[in-house]
Computed example of a mutant assay.
Amino acid sequence: MFGMGKKDGGAEKEEAERKRIEATMVSIDSGFDHLRHHAEAGNTERSEAAAKRLVESLKNPKLPPPYTKDRRNAVDAFLLHAYMKATALACKRAIDAGMIDDIEKRSENIKKAREFLAGAVKYKAPPDFKRQCERMLEVATFSGGVKAKGPTKAKPLDTAPKVKDRAKHYDPNEETEEKPVIPQNLKI
């Protein structure tokens, strides 16, 4: 009787261990949903934190090796996507700030875009993406700060009085300095 209980106890332990591994895998998969949402939003800080938690969970030696390898590759892919999205958004904000002549905001967004681009390159971003971002940052750098807000030496303030355009219409009730003369003896 005692021997049978030990066998059942061993099977129960194996079953409990299998259930723990399955629960860990479900937890990891739900963590990927959070990581996906953060990556789609371009939020690199939260993506890094979620990725760190997932990598810690994947260090469990009882997880199947193909599963852990696949999930580690997926973590890197999501982090790459997060950094690429954040870089693109920062470049767009920099260009928009340049268009409205907000030089400080433009410089701040260019700095952020360069930081995010470095993170994207760290996670093996394609070379085309890097070239495209460099072009966008160049456009942002050269945009804004060109148009003067007030009068300049080349275009001074126009203080001359406006001249009425009398060639287009004639209003007899309008008072003018001289009235046109209409001949009375014309026969039509």
Rank of each mutant, 00 (worst) to 15 (best):
Y170N: 04
G9D: 14
K6N: 11
T152Y: 01
R20E: 12
H169M: 05
A167E: 09
T68F: 06
R71L: 00
D70K: 11
E22I: 12
V146Y: 09
G150W: 07
L157A: 12
A77S: 05
R93F: 01
P180D: 09
C91R: 09
Y170S: 01
K105S: 09
V26N: 14
G31Y: 00
A125L: 06
T176E: 12
T141M: 07
K187Q: 11
A86E: 01
K187W: 09
A118T: 04
G10I: 13
D171F: 08
E40F: 03
G144T: 04
R18E: 14
P65K: 09
Q184H: 08
K52P: 02
K105M: 06
T24C: 08
M84L: 03
D128C: 00
Y83G: 04
I103G: 08
R20I: 04
I95Y: 11
G119S: 13
R72K: 09
S107N: 10
A11V: 07
F142Y: 12
D96C: 03
A140W: 04
R72P: 00
I100E: 12
A41K: 15
A120L: 06
P156I: 09
D158H: 05
N185S: 05
T44V: 15
H81N: 12
P183K: 15
V121Q: 02
D101A: 14
M1D: 07
L157W: 10
F129G: 09
K85G: 03
L137N: 04
P151V: 01
L137S: 04
I95E: 10
K7H: 07
K155E: 11
K124L: 11
M84T: 14
T87G: 10
A148H: 13
K105L: 06
M99D: 06
K85Y: 05
